[in-house]
């Protein structure tokens, strides 16, 4: 597959790795706007490394990425991103280290019959309602954010905007939609969340 060039970044994509699409571009654009030089940045579900590579190409920041998919990790590593394999925050110390955590989660409502074979399923499958991974992520994320730190989360209207906001508020976050665009049959948005310390 030809490398993707976007906002000074050049990213190679391997087979069995989520190919950057509108969601990735929107999250990368917001990330460049919101991230300042010198910040500590984590990308959860780093995939090919596309979003982190765009951040690194435009800011004096070296994002760290993690994923559960070994093919994605090899791809992101080749794209120059520091990565480790982890099930969500499993492999991270609870030292409140990060200024910004980026996450383009598996957000599609997925029934048993719709599951994909192999690791790529982890890129899409958000459980029956599309919010399983998002709920687990928000139950844990505050241990890893600095005071005043923020989450930039991508979701689709298919994930259920109000229900996702309910999850965030339940876990003590204030949430705002900071970018929104319309695709064929869904709205795509990036939500910024800060913990109410």
């Amino acid at each position: 597959m030809a490398p993707i060039s976007y906002r000074n970044a050049f990213v190679s994509i391997e087979n069995d790795v989520y190919e950057p699409a509108e969601d990735s571009f929107l999250l990368a654009d917001v990330a460049i706007d919101r991230i300042s030089d010198g910040m500590k940045v984590l990308e959860m579900g780093v995939g090919s490394g596309f979003v982190s590579a765009v951040v690194a190409a435009n800011k004096n920041v070296e994002p760290t990425g993690c994923d559960i998919n070994p093919d994605a990790l090899e791809c992101a590593y080749k794209n120059g991103i520091q990565v480790f394999r982890s099930n969500l925050f499993g492999g991270l110390t609870k030292k409140a280290y990060f200024d910004v955590i980026l996450f383009n989660p598996p957000y599609l409502p997925t029934s048993e019959e719709e599951k994909l074979e192999g690791w790529l399923n982890y890129a899409f499958d958000g459980g029956v309602e599309g919010r399983d991974i998002i709920a687990t992520f928000f139950a844990e994320v505050s241990d890893y954010l600095k005071p005043g730190g923020s989450v930039l989360l991508f979701i689709s209207s298919l994930t259920g905007r109000r229900e996702v906001f309910d999850i965030m508020e339940r876990e003590g976050f204030s949430a705002y939609v900071v970018a929104e665009t319309r695709s064929f049959f869904e709205k795509l948005m990036v939500i910024e969340c800060k913990h109410n310390c």
């Binding site: 559960i68 480790f84 394999r85 982890s86 499993g90 492999g91 991270l92």
Partner: peptide, 8 residues
Amino acid sequence: KGIPNMLP
């Protein structure tokens, strides 16, 4: 290959 595997 440069990648730590932190899965249990």
